[in-house]
Nucleic acid binder design. Structure first.
Lengths: 244, 244
DNA sequence: CGATACGTTGACGGAAATCAACCCCGGTGG
DNA sequence: CCACCGGGGTTGATTTCCGTCAACGTATCG
């Protein structure tokens, strides 16, 4: 089979992610670059990995918006995290017997997979890669903590402001610096599931944020009109995104 | 200085926790048992570790109820997790530059500490201990995910039912099997901070649960009168507590 | 052109926050 | 011994936020 068009992107993204978490040796890089990858494309709304499965691969988001979600007993979907291109949402699956959550494509998305059996040896050999994996998982836990504060304590307007700040900041870190316009290829219903609000209320809060001249969400983009104002409103402190 | 009265308890708890996560060799056990521990006692309401600190120790809960919390910008306290005796809430601090959260004594508590510098060499030598640490962190992340569902999606009555189920189940796993009465040495205000509710509302919901003959919370104990009913109401599925 | 999916708007109701008393009980000190 | 105090729990009245329901608008697509 011919190489997937995204294969170079995927390798570079994996390398960049891990290198940002721990200093890699040349041998580490070599090992990572030679990992066999498979690819899949998903259209918006599809499940990439299902809740309850016994995982045997790790995912790397190459293109598009991916979410981690959990289905509650009454069938509702709670979105637990966003995963942007370059994220590796799945290192934890190495040690999970079965998944308590799923990964879903929020927009059309391209995802690469590495089999667990190829990662194990790498981890045994390299303490830097072990450290990077550990930190990646810790970083995600820090985001969960902040979301708990956000959903547990803040009213809808501030809650949404905070979420937009997080998305903007994460894109900034990923190289979108300078631009106040970010991709936001998701439905109001997705936002609702992530914020613990109803779809109708998301709509109204979105209008209020617009009326306050803080953001403009239209089409598939988020335009931040007043970043300081938005951060102030959301009580946003970006520290939790740069913890490790 | 003479040995602390709890030193044996603390060592055994640490060993038991790690052994439950990965098979330890004799050498692993030896190394863990010879870790230098220090101890501190805290009275209810005190902060054990403060948000913003650069950590250099890991904590082991020996006696009492400990919580992980985060202070939001408006000064409110969101409780993110409970830590019962035997929990090791702090392995993650090994890799965090600074803490995004604090640890607080909810009841009077005894906590043991291990210095990071003593843990590093152990981790380098033993892959089982590395695995156990990793799994401990993953397990905690799974609890965050469930709390996000709980706070994001469930109304107050079900939310509190779910939390009581979690506490009961975790005590069961820790050896309280058979007893429907569990220690619950916390204030209604603590419950409120953990559930994202007001103190007043916690009080009313507590009465409703009692009226429904599901639980009786009095003094410092939680008596579960109807465990199946409580789990049904809370939509509780204990899987997330036994994921690794 | 209708069908469908998504967004928008208004009316209404209910869950939970807030505010403010008040109670209960254990501790403390005169 | 009793008075006082303070922390925590309880209760009621009121308000606010947000969910639900239902209708309608609008864009895209086959």
């Amino acid at each position: 089979m011919p190489d997937h068009p995204h294969i170079e992107t995927a390798r570079q993204r994996l390398l960049a992610k891990l290198a940002s978490l721990a200093p890699l040796t040349d041998e580490d890089r070599q090992g990572l670059l030679s990992l066999p990858l498979t690819f899949d494309s998903w259209s918006a709304g599809q499940d990439i990995v299902c809740q309850g499965e016994a995982p045997n691969v790790c995912a790397i988001v190459v293109e598009g918006f991916v979410c981690r979600f959990k289905l509650s007993s009454d069938g509702a979907r709670e979105i637990l995290a966003w995963h942007l291109p370059g994220d590796t949402p799945d290192f934890q699956s190495l040690y999970l017997k079965r998944l308590d959550h799923g990964l879903g494509a929020v927009s059309d998305a391209v995802v690469a997979f590495v089999q667990h059996k190829h990662i194990g040896p790498l981890l045994e050999r390299s303490s830097a890669i072990r450290t990077a994996f550990f930190k990646d998982v810790l970083q995600e836990a820090a985001v969960y903590r902040e979301w708990l504060v956000n959903i547990g304590h803040r009213p809808a307007l501030q809650r949404m402001a905070h979420m937009f700040c997080e998305i903007a900041t994460r894109f900034d870190h990923a190289g979108f610096e300078g631009s106040p316009r970010y991709p936001l290829p998701l439905l109001q219903a997705d936002l609702a599931d992530a914020l613990g609000l109803s779809g109708v209320h998301v709509n109204r809060v979105l209008q209020e944020l617009r009326r306050m001249a803080l953001v403009a969400v239209r089409g598939r983009t988020l335009e931040v009109l007043d970043r300081p104002g938005l951060e102030e409103l959301g009580g946003f402190d970006p520290d939790y995104l740069r913890l490790v």
